[in-house]
Design a binder for these strands. Structure first.
Lengths: 190, 190
DNA sequence: CACTATAAACTAATGACATTAGTTTTGCAA
DNA sequence: TTGCAAAACTAATGTCATTAGTTTATAGTG
């Protein structure tokens, strides 16, 4: 309605995140975002350096939210219980924030620093909750990669509608985690 | 050089696939493809119904290649050995065909029939190689979903440069599969 | 062998988008 | 109050997909 819409990088990112999650990642354009904000698209360049930069900021924001959700879900737990809780939080996040989630995986051209820091934080959280399994350092990395891959795989395939059969996906996650973690334990006796 | 370039849906798909794998999925535009084919972009509409349709055709083509690669890798094997071989073929395919691979997961608006058929074929292949583990029908579904998710997760994260630490990714896959399959076996005694 | 219908290519035009340049306007701070 | 920096704007360019309408090659028919 007036000049001086009072924009701000944070406002822009929040609205863009909303767009990403409700309309899909590909619908986040400077044009659509500007319309949502009641502004002409060139005005956005006063706050963000272009579409790639916006996506990079969104990726970092998504990673922050994901980190918070997982930390909160894990609480002080470690081991099996923590893995189950984190898995639930992970798939829940991907369902609640499909656009944002998809972006967290993309290699970010900008904001490398913060993105890397958050990714590392995630890895360390996983390492921590797997510590009761008594894995070697290298095995720990393998296991964390496996856990991340498993959770991302489920989230990604579900997000793309890739599971046709009407069997509860959460049950599949629970089943697979149970067996994988059992396999991690089994090592002790072999 | 001349009218009548002798285009053809197959030629178009092959060149598009090449573009997707060498330049990235987002670089597959009708404009870039037309240039590669020595033709003006509207000419492509004589053979394909637009960019979304082209991507849908590419997805089906990618799934075909993936199916072939996995079938070939598995041969007649089942059980552990087959899983290891298929895993290697899967990650190898994703590395050799990053653009095509990414597309195989996308929900296809067109060509639903063929895409579904190929996706089902993949699921059945996985079910077959897991048959020695003596899982119930529902457990089999869970396990297949887990295996797909694991492989897709690794392929997808690797494809996006998400594994920072310089530890061999194939080793991680091998480790995780070993433990997961061990977990599947363990059931018999619990 | 000529001829014609069709399919394949073309040019021209439109509309969405990102981005840049250059201009106006507003609000805060001196 | 005034003036300046930031925030918004308009105008313009270039890329893309897509549609409409035109030309042309070629394959098949007489």
């Amino acid at each position: 309605m007036s000049p001086r819409a009072g924009l701000d990088l944070n406002v822009i990112i929040m609205q863009a995140a909303e767009l990403a999650d409700s309309e899909g990642l590909e619908s986040v354009t400077l044009a659509s975002l500007a319309k949502k904000l009641g502004v002409r698209s060139p005005s956005l360049y006063n706050h963000v350096e272009g579409l790639p930069a916006l996506r990079s900021h969104l990726a970092v924001y998504g990673l922050q939210l994901l980190n918070e959700a997982l930390s909160h879900a894990a609480g002080d737990a470690i081991g099996y219980e923590a893995v189950v809780r984190i898995a639930s939080a992970y798939t829940g996040f991907a369902r609640a924030h499909p656009g944002l989630y998809e972006l967290t995986l993309r290699a970010p051209s900008l904001d490398n620093k913060e993105h890397e820091r958050l990714a590392d934080k995630l890895v360390n959280m996983f390492l921590n909750i797997l510590s009761p399994y008594g894995l070697s350092e290298e095995e720990g990395i393998h296991a964390v990669r496996g856990l991340r891959s498993l959770l991302h795989g489920f989230a990604s395939i579900e997000g793309h509608g890739g599971f046709g059969i009407p069997i509860d996906i959460d049950k599949s996650v629970a089943f697979v985690l149970h067996r994988f973690l059992a396999g991690l334990e089994k090592k002790k006796g072999s």
